[in-house]
Amino acid sequence: MPRVSEAHLAARRQQILDAAARCFARNGFHQTSMQDVIKEAGLSVGAFYRYFKSKNELITAIAGEKISAVTDVLDQLLETEPMPPIPVMLEQVLEVVDAAVDNGGPVLIAVQVWGEAVHDPEVGALVAEIYGRVRGRAVRTAERAQATGQLPPDADPAGIGAAFFGLVQGYILQRVLLGNVDRQLYMNGVRALLG
């Protein structure tokens, strides 16, 4: 029997993740069954369960994949010389958020996962780890901004990182709940608050 290539396995796993993301965005996390995802992916039950055993595994994989887009942007910006001002960095992260909202709803899933994390300790722990990565990048951004004189020497990088992360989450909630948040208007408000 021929061995299945790593590329084939990765493509099949992505096929399942894409199908799950469509189902969760369309019907919600709780209203989507594993059978719904299997049908959407066009796979047999056995083929599906080779990759994922539960909805929690699916949602964790989707969240990790989508958060990587944000952490990648922050990592690139942190390596830029000179480092861009914090509002510029925030706006670039929000561009990633907008693309995720406009491309089929992965951000809609994020908000569902936040709600699930409140009630499910397993999801809560995974969400804390995944979102902790973004917040960690935000703290490093503040530390670097402080080292380059963008922030006062007595500023608290942990507090600034938490606020930066909160601005991203606040934007996501407004995009999902209100639907008509203009990124430029939001950024004008952020710049005015920062003085």
Results as ranks from 00 to 15, higher is better:
Q184D: 13
D98N: 12
G159N: 13
G136W: 00
L177S: 09
Q92W: 05
L167S: 05
L43I: 04
R133V: 11
P84G: 08
R3K: 15
N27F: 12
L77K: 10
Y131H: 05
Q14L: 14
A110F: 14
C23V: 09
R3V: 15
G124S: 06
G179S: 03
R137V: 00
D182W: 05
Y171E: 02
I38G: 02
V70S: 05
C23Y: 04
R183F: 02
F164P: 02
G124V: 03
R191H: 14
V134S: 00
Y171T: 01
A47F: 10
Q112G: 09
A110W: 15
P106F: 07
I67F: 11
D102E: 14
F24Q: 08
A41S: 09
V181N: 03
R3L: 15
E40L: 03
K39M: 11
A128T: 12
A41M: 06
V96T: 13
G179V: 03
G42E: 07
P85K: 10
P84S: 06
N188F: 08
P85E: 06
G46V: 01
C23P: 08
T71H: 10
I130D: 00
V45F: 14
R191V: 06
D156C: 08
E122Y: 11
Q15R: 13
V101A: 06
Q184H: 13
D75V: 02
P87I: 04
V134E: 01
L78Q: 00
R50W: 04
T32S: 07
R175S: 01
A10W: 02
A25D: 07
D102P: 00
Y186F: 12
D120F: 09
I160K: 03
K39E: 13
I86K: 02
V4A: 07
R12W: 02
M187N: 03
Q31C: 11
A99D: 09
F29M: 14
G46E: 06
V123T: 09
Y51G: 08
T32Q: 04
R140M: 00
